[in-house]
Nucleic acid binder design. Structure first.
Lengths: 184, 184
DNA sequence: ACAGGCATGTAAATAGTTACATGATTCG
DNA sequence: CGAATCATGTAACTATTTACATGCCTGT
């Protein structure tokens, strides 16, 4: 079996916590890893097949009434593969932030409009923060033997707060320097 | 002309600051936007052609000796296009962080090994921080009419510091709770 | 003479999103 | 009954990276 993509490990990681359908995995991703590792149906379903072919998971048909449904379980090989990956040094960490990109080139705009970019960025981070807050509420109502998802979630909360604050600080700084220029 | 990709605006943004070759743009990207918006030769050269075809930039042959070289300048249409884009609300902001992904699933590992993930993450952020510091040194030696690249750079410095600190805090927290468990 | 940087480009592969098609079940 | 949700899947597209090919110029 050739090397797996990180997205394959997302699946392995969730399936390890208990048997799941592709649909369930997608829903879980959308409430957790998607903030630092997204995955779409177009990746999940083919990847489930590949993992099953490689013997890292096994699927079984468990229809709900007449609605077909395949749920997958992790195998011993799958667990081993997951752990081996977890032990390797993480490689990719990238960001694609159109807001920062616009801010970087904001000199092409009058200052009043440049400030708008920062406000938009702040609003977006705050929105994510609220989203995460809601997810945390939900989570705290369930069981919590595994502390890691919550740790990461709280990291996201802190990060979005830091980012939103940074936007405000820069906004203030920009408005200040605009005033200075006018009075000089 | 159909809609441009954000990568096209990276080019437009840099070319606006003065005539540049594809090679120069790539070098600039690698020392600035690549931390929040990367671009490879495979994107830059085809995109330069597309932008030239669309009349947003114009290229002219300016060989250095026998070495061929095309440098591009922005047109009035190009400047207009760039400003129009800057005024639109930024859309994409995504992160792909394999370290956070591993941390999220770290329950599959014994605690001592989970801590290793955090140490690796911290080291990587520190490495980026040093890289940014070096870039800042270089930048401060030049002229600085445009304040925005420096603002973004300093944001990156602050972000990587926050992140590295967070890793250390979580590491300490994990080690602490491991001790508690042992003594109970 | 050779290494390293300047310079342009493309082919192939990989990754990933979007949109669509299909159909069952549940709840109001 | 209709909407929402459960459920699976694929085709087409877009984006992006990697690796390669080519070749000149400059400094040691």
């Amino acid at each position: 079996m050739e090397e797996l993509s990180p997205t394959a490990y997302v699946i392995l990681g969730f399936v390890r916590k208990g048997p799941k359908s592709g649909y369930e995995i997608k829903a879980l991703v959308d409430n957790s890893t998607r903030f630092f590792w997204a995955a779409s149906y177009g990746q999940i379903y083919p990847e489930l097949k590949r993992l099953a072919d490689g013997g890292l998971i096994v699927g079984s048909e468990q229809p709900t009434g007449g609605r077909r449904r395949t749920i997958y379980e992790i195998t011993a090989d799958g667990e081993e593969e997951l752990r081996a990956w977890l032990r390797e040094r993480p490689q990719t960490f990238e960001m694609r932030d159109e807001g920062l990109l616009k801010l970087f080139f904001a000199d092409a705009l009058p200052r009043e409009e440049a400030v708008e970019i920062l406000r938009a960025m702040r609003d977006q981070r705050r929105a994510v923060n609220e989203r995460l807050r809601a997810i945390k509420e939900m989570k705290l109502k369930g069981e919590l033997e595994d502390p890691f998802p919550l740790i990461v979630l709280e990291g996201g909360l802190e990060f979005t707060e830091w980012f939103a604050d940074w936007c405000e600080r820069i906004e203030a700084q920009l408005l200040e320097s605009a005033l200075e220029e006018r009075s000089s």
